[in-house]
């Protein structure tokens, strides 16, 4: 039925556009280099969703074949990018994108970070289990008992 196929295509294009947009948001906004690369990979995912939908709609293998090559290129990109990020981290000790502001031209002003409050203890606290019931009584004699070998 053609109309349901059109609806399927539209839905997939919408989902692909939203995933691409969220990846764009992450790449623009986040400062951690690794999260930026994750966002770039997410943009590739959004494009892949659209390509597979077009492939189904036109009954053509081209979209799926292109997605296979996208996965290949993403693997290459991840290998190179992670090697670069590790080297940058080794030199600076940070995964911050803003630190490369140090390689700016001479007539450009230094980038000043805004001040944010320190991460307080209670905001980064991990959950812990509250003790329930009572500690069981330990029979020391039975714990020390060993059968004769």
């Amino acid at each position: 039925m053609p109309s349901s196929e059109v609806a399927l295509l539209q839905n997939y294009l919408i989902v692909g556009a939203i995933v691409f947009g969220i990846g764009l948001l992450g790449f623009l906004a986040r400062r951690n280099l690794i999260v930026m690369f994750l966002s770039a990979e997410m943009m590739l995912q959004g494009v892949s969703i659209s390509l597979v939908a077009w492939s189904r709609y036109h009954n053509d293998w081209g979209g799926q074949l292109l997605v296979i090559f996208i996965i290949t290129v993403a693997a290459c990109e991840a290998a190179i990018a992670l090697a670069l990020v590790l080297m940058l981290f080794r030199r600076s000790g940070k995964l911050d994108a803003a630190i490369w502001n140090a390689s700016r031209e001479e007539n450009i002003a230094e980038f000043k970070d805004i001040e944010i409050p320190e991460d307080r203890e209670e905001t980064s606290r991990f959950p812990h289990l509250t003790p329930a019931g009572r500690r069981p009584l330990v029979d020391e004699e039975s714990q020390l008992y060993r059968p004769r070998v």
Binding site: A17, I18, L28, A29, D96
Partner: peptide
């Protein structure tokens, strides 16, 4: 880390992404 708790221009980035998604959808 400090750089995980802050974004580049959160308002402008969110606006860009929202406009992109709006145009596409």
């Amino acid at each position: 880390a400090y750089y995980d708790r802050i974004s580049w221009e959160a308002c402008v980035s969110a606006g860009t992404a929202a406009v992109f998604v709006g145009l596409m959808v």
